[in-house]
Design a protein around this nucleic acid. Structure first.
Lengths: 153, 153
DNA sequence: TTGCTCCTCACGTCACGTGAGGTGGC
DNA sequence: TTGCTCCTCACGTCACGTGAGGTGGC
């Protein structure tokens, strides 16, 4: 096994993390500043170092930001809820009490329902936009066909 | 026919336009300042007055801004293209040359295709997000059912 | 050692929000 | 006349972009 480019699991620097997530180093530092991302585990003045888990985390954040239009304050609230759920998963693994486990699972379902509602209402709005464009297009196409039929004669 | 609230066709002031389009007076003035909206036809210091056509125009802009995530610079480019197409429609009504009319219709189709591509790629991204949430939910639901079956025994 | 990427200020920008102080129309 | 909405500055804010000047690691 020789050298491999982009070896999975290898630590990343901020530039790599940025290109892999479609953002910029500035954005990453800003998110760290406002508490949306961990500090890449660095001392002041030294280079930040990230892991594969950070790639996933940042990708998730940018997706929610771009596709659901969440503000960074909303994202931060969401991340805090996420951390709370991570703590729940911890408890899940430590307990074997089925009553507690059911409560944890139901909590997870409620959270997923909220996310799904957001995604679906945005999708519905986009679908409406799409319908409008398609209707206009159909109308123009009909007119164009008529003009071309006329030209045939 | 007596007084009707919100009579269609009556001129609007900026506050009315704002509430009808889900924006704010400040946003409307800003859009005017950067050339995205006409000036409500007012002299300096006097009240701006808008028509029903302005409602539609602003709604269209906010939809494209919110759902497609366009910047105001992109919106302005789009508005300019829109104005160019309006000029084409003018020519359409003045000409009866079928060759010219076909050219105009084809131009309109190209423009609609660009818009549709944008909408659809955004919809696809949202659909992917949705699939992820649905898969997670299914998994949690399965676990929950198992726990409840256990409780039944 | 030479590039390249990284570091920390810090000011600039985009798209508005938010008063401050004053005028206009039902 | 009294409210209410409108007007124009003008500073503040959010989410970064963009140098300026300097240090770190393959």
């Amino acid at each position: 096994v020789g050298r491999t480019l982009a070896r999975s699991g290898a630590p990343l620097r901020i530039g790599e993390l940025a290109t892999r997530t479609g953002t910029t180093p500035r954005t990453i530092r800003y998110y760290e500043e406002i508490g949306l991302l961990p500090g890449g585990d660095h001392e002041r003045g030294k280079h930040r170092v990230y892991s594969d888990r950070d790639i996933e985390r940042l990708r998730e954040l940018t997706r929610l930001r771009d596709h659901l239009g969440l503000t960074l304050a909303e994202l931060r609230a969401l991340v805090e809820a996420e951390d709370a759920r991570a703590a729940l998963r911890e408890r899940w693994h430590r307990t074997h009490d089925p009553v507690e486990r059911r409560a944890i699972a139901r909590e997870a379902l409620r959270h997923l329902a909220v996310q799904l509602d957001l995604v679906r209402s945005r999708k519905a709005a986009l679908a409406e936009l799409e319908r409008g464009f398609v209707a206009k297009r159909r109308q123009v196409q009909r007119i164009l066909r008529e003009l071309e039929a006329e030209a045939q004669v």
